[in-house]
Amino acid sequence: MNAIGVLVRKEAGEVLMSGRGLTWLLALSGMLSVFTLLLVSNTELSLLDNAQVVYDMVGLVTALGALLALILGADSVAGERERGTLVPLLLTPLSRGQILAGKLGGLLIAWGVMYVLALPYLWAVGSTGQNMTDAMVVLAVLGTPVVLAFAFFGMGLGAVLGSLRSTLLTGLVVLILSASPLLLGPSLRQATVGRAFDAVNPFSGALNAYDAVIIDSQTLIAQAGHWLTILAWTGLALWFAVHGFKRVSR
């Protein structure tokens, strides 16, 4: 196993095998269970149709994934720095890029676990409809870069701010702001401000693509505009993480 693989294994082990990791998995299962119960109740009462609940579930998993990525990204730099475990890593014969790649690999495994964990819940709310496969694909294809963007952002912010608390506070504010389309009503989203926000917001890009694919049954290829918005933000966040991580000295 090469050095990056060794680091990926360590990072994934830290997320999935430590007490913290187990707590996170339990909390995630609890949240998905509650949300599933609410959505299934709505479907049974015919308040929401099947496609709508699948869309809501996919949006929630993306938001939770972004939250997870932000926390893990921040912890992997600012947290490790505060715990004194980052410097020994920086002093190994690995380049900064390799260390960042290793940390990202561990984070992607955590997202993978979360994705797999979300599938039974997605099935529970959407098994009677025709859009389950589309939902799973669009979540993987567009949800992953959104999660990556927040992971990079957490890492970069952790490198620049140094303190885990400051990083998490700042990161959560940004996450809430960018996830606000989930909270905006349709009329506000149709207003000029809402449209402008939608056009540049990676979260909106993902949600609009989910909407088009899951509810309107459009193809994924047709979502190129949303895809580009998301990838542009992911690229920008990657640049921020790489440049921030280069500045970490102790």
């Binding site: 490790e80 004194g84 475990t85 020994p88 102790r250």
Partner: peptide
């Protein structure tokens, strides 16, 4: 290197 602030993976 044994740095001043020396942390470990407790798990």
């Amino acid at each position: 290197v044994l740095p001043e602030q020396n942390g470990f993976y407790g798990w």
